[in-house]
Design a protein around this nucleic acid. Structure first.
Length: 374
DNA sequence: TTCTCCCGCCATTTT
DNA sequence: AAAATGGCGGGAGAA
């Protein structure tokens, strides 16, 4: 087809590398490009040319980012940068919505904790009308029922409304609304789930793992999941601070460390985060002296951000303490787990974040000690 | 081989 | 009518 022709042409100039073209990399680049103080609006064409991709791919990334609240469509060709700090709120909404729609019942049938699970018996009554985008209903939802966005929402709901360890994309495709009997449709849906999973992975919301028993690739949620999950009280949830452990780690590079950190975070955060954490996130004026973005005033109190943190959140003092105990030797860790990246871009990214993290860490711990003394 | 998922055609929607 | 969106699945790279 013409695509292969263009690839041939491409490869004459420079070696074609499929991985470098992935939506995940594109998403990372997108976030690196626009996760800045001075960004308000994003032009699609501008983004496409800066990122060196065709317009069509921007739609893919932007649609997914839109469903987690990072950007919002403003006008034709134009998006508003909302920021990563929106993610926790959107997740919260998605979870509430998912619980209302009985996603927690659905998920039981696709959990991969059960080995050799091929039974999807309980896929009852999944509400296909995921079109009501949040109780706020302030969004224009006319196009909300389109596939990629809706599929993203539903995929996330599967994680948020359950406590499953991991989900196979194939199972997710079967469980999510749509024609589960049509093999072609299912294949297409799995393709889309791959796209979505790549983007969510690049943001550190999920990670790809191998299922210990079946060895099959699956995805694991890394981030805040909310309090009660599917079994406990949803009632006590209401007025408490919700978020913690958001994107606790850097994507794709360190499964072992993730286990160490995120399991602590994901589990104990369930208790920890519901306490009051006044002042956990210390907001700092940015370097320009410009005032903080409007979002920060209502930031949840105990969020830890992943590979991409909101620019307005510069210090997480309490987290520093925990990290101080969990991670004794950064250099060691970095060198131990670095090789997980095969992709040069990711390697660079990883290095970049390690450097950033290191300086932040030193700074945060230093500050903490200063406060003690004073 | 199977798993992944990029790529761009073309239908649909918006301007 | 033209431009903007984005569903969709072929088929090639990766594992």
């Amino acid at each position: 087809m013409s695509s292969s022709v263009s690839r041939e042409i491409d490869s004459r100039d420079s070696a074609y590398c499929r991985k470098e073209k992935s939506l995940g990399v594109l998403c990372s680049n997108f976030l690196r490009l626009y996760n800045r103080e001075d960004v308000r609006t994003i032009g699609l064409d501008d983004a496409a040319s800066k990122l060196g991709v065709e317009r069509r791919r921007m739609y893919d990334v932007v649609n997914i980012l839109e469903t987690v609240g990072v950007v919002a469509r403003k006008a034709k060709n134009q998006y508003t940068w909302k920021g990563l700090e929106e993610i926790p709120w959107v997740l919260e909404q998605l979870k509430e919505e998912g619980l209302r729609e009985n996603f927690n019942a659905t998920i039981c049938s696709i959990t991969t904790r059960v080995s050799n699970d091929n039974e999807y018996k309980g896929l009852l009554g999944l509400n296909t009308t995921g079109d009501d985008y949040s109780s706020g209903s302030s969004k224009n939802k006319n196009k909300r029922d389109k596939s990629l966005a809706l599929l993203t929402q539903n995929f996330i709901k599967l994680f948020l409304c359950s406590d499953v360890d991991s989900i196979l994309l194939e199972n997710a495709a079967k469980a999510l609304p749509g024609d589960a009997d049509d093999a072609t449709a299912l294949r297409t849906k799995v393709r889309r789930l791959y796209d979505i999973a790549n983007v969510l992975s690049s943001m550190g919301l999920i990670e790809k793992i191998r299922h210990p028993d079946s060895g099959k690739p699956a995805y694991r949620w890394l981030c805040w999941r909310g309090k009660a999950n599917n079994k406990v009280d949803a009632a006590s949830d209401v007025n408490e601070p919700k978020m913690s452990g958001f994107g606790t780690d850097i994507t794709n590079y360190c499964f072992k460390r993730k286990r160490e950190v995120t399991e602590v975070d994901c589990k104990s955060s369930q208790e920890r985060s519901w306490q009051t954490h006044d002042g956990l996130i210390e907001l700092e004026p940015n370097s320009d002296g410009e005032e903080m973005k409007q979002h920060t005033k209502h930031l949840p109190k105990a969020i830890e951000f992943g590979p991409f943190a909101p620019i307005s959140v510069s210090k997480v003092e309490d987290a520093a303490n925990k990290r101080a105990r969990q991670i004794q030797d950064l250099e060691n860790l970095a060198s131990t787990y670095r090789p997980q990246y095969r992709n040069q871009a990711l390697c660079d990214l990883f290095t970049h974040y390690m450097e950033a993290w290191k300086s932040w860490f030193v700074d945060a711990v230093g500050k903490q000690q200063m406060q003690r003394i004073c």
